[in-house]
Design a protein around this nucleic acid. Structure first.
Lengths: 200, 200
DNA sequence: TACATTTGCTAACGCTGTTAGGAAACATAA
DNA sequence: TTATGTTTCCTAACAGCGTTAGCAAATGTA
């Protein structure tokens, strides 16, 4: 009987329309302006219907966080595959990371904050593993070809990630232009320092 | 006539009690739980009275942001004065910055976010100038004693700050312990790399 | 046709920040 | 001392928020 299947399909359509409507609101008015009643109006349902598809408002934000990390991973993966040497890969990944953050500001905001992400939310994001692994792999390769094989790759991942996120979040609060010359140089400064630090 | 003076004094007392009550609430329940009605109850006034001292709720948060940067500056200044060489100063400042962030988590949160600070708020914080200048001074000294005198101090300041903030915000969302061994090493890794990068 | 289930609504609760309007307390001047 | 103007501070309310309860209609099942 295809009835239940149709129902599932329809339910998923509503779920998708909730996410789509939410995204449109966020694009136009920012995360702060996103409210259940506004979503309800956009999807032409009453507000409580949303609770048939999401446990609460936070669950919607969480979904976007997951989506954001998925997309980020995809772009980093593409950037990485374009090169073979770990050095070039680390540069390309950093550039792609930056590019993602500023052409998907809304994603980056929900992924990393809107009032610092809590311990619990972070742990639930399985996509973070792919993210870590993607970069760890390159770092391990770089270490393997370096003078100091005992370098801790986790430590270096942490360093790399912190650098990138710090630079981006400092820049996002300062200006909304995107990458200017100064910060582009800081980024380059970062990466070259990071790489030569591992090479030894 | 001391009447108006007394009034001013009393008004400032109420203002101070608003800030004090707010802080107690935040310490106990976090920023998210801070509401005007809760403040009003704590100071034993009705909620609208708060508007006689602050334009709106955001103005209260802003006041804490300013306060936070003031205290941070003070501690960084102390840390800096304890050493004479730029290298040691940069290490001490970084340590003090980290220490401040984790022993004043509530301050750090309101200073750097609760939903990424906007361009406008950032510009209004005059304390940011003292902050920049304090670090810039040390960086300039380090450059002056280095092999490459043409190094841009602003670029290096940006790098230094981004490193610190990135490391801290990544760590704050991961765990609430404070500094563990790994991140302590990352911090050390950062600073030594940063310094040797300038020295050339 | 009768029953069970799902669907989606209205209404409401208890919050939020904020504003309007009036009453009481106060300071000033006749 | 009494009258006038001003400040202080309250209650009540508005418009919005996330969320829940409960009911009515539509739908699927037998």
């Amino acid at each position: 009987m295809g009835i239940t299947e149709r129902k599932i399909r329809q339910k998923e359509e509503v779920r998708a329309s909730i996410l789509l409507a939410s995204w449109k609101i966020v694009e136009k008015e920012g995360w702060q302006a996103l409210s259940l009643r506004k979503i309800a109006e956009a999807i032409e349902y009453s507000a409580p219907v949303i609770y048939d598809h999401f446990a609460n408002k936070e669950a919607i934000l969480f979904e976007f966080t997951r989506q954001g990390f998925q997309r980020l991973n995809k772009e980093l993966s593409v950037a990485k595959k374009a090169f073979s040497s770990p050095e070039q890969q680390l540069i390309a990944i950093a550039d792609a990371y930056w590019e993602f953050a500023f052409s998907n500001k809304e994603y980056y905001q929900v992924m990393y904050g809107l009032g610092m992400p809590t311990c619990e939310t972070v742990k639930q994001i399985s996509e973070l593993n792919s993210f870590s692994e993607l970069i760890l792999d390159t770092i391990r390769n770089l270490i393997a070809a370096s003078k100091n094989l005992a370098t801790d790759p986790f430590l270096k991942l942490h360093t790399y990630w912190s650098m990138l996120h710090g630079l981006i979040s400092i820049n996002m609060m300062g200006k909304d232009n995107g990458k200017d010359e100064l910060t582009a140089m800081v980024l380059k400064d970062f990466i070259t320092g990071f790489i030569s630090g591992i090479k030894g």
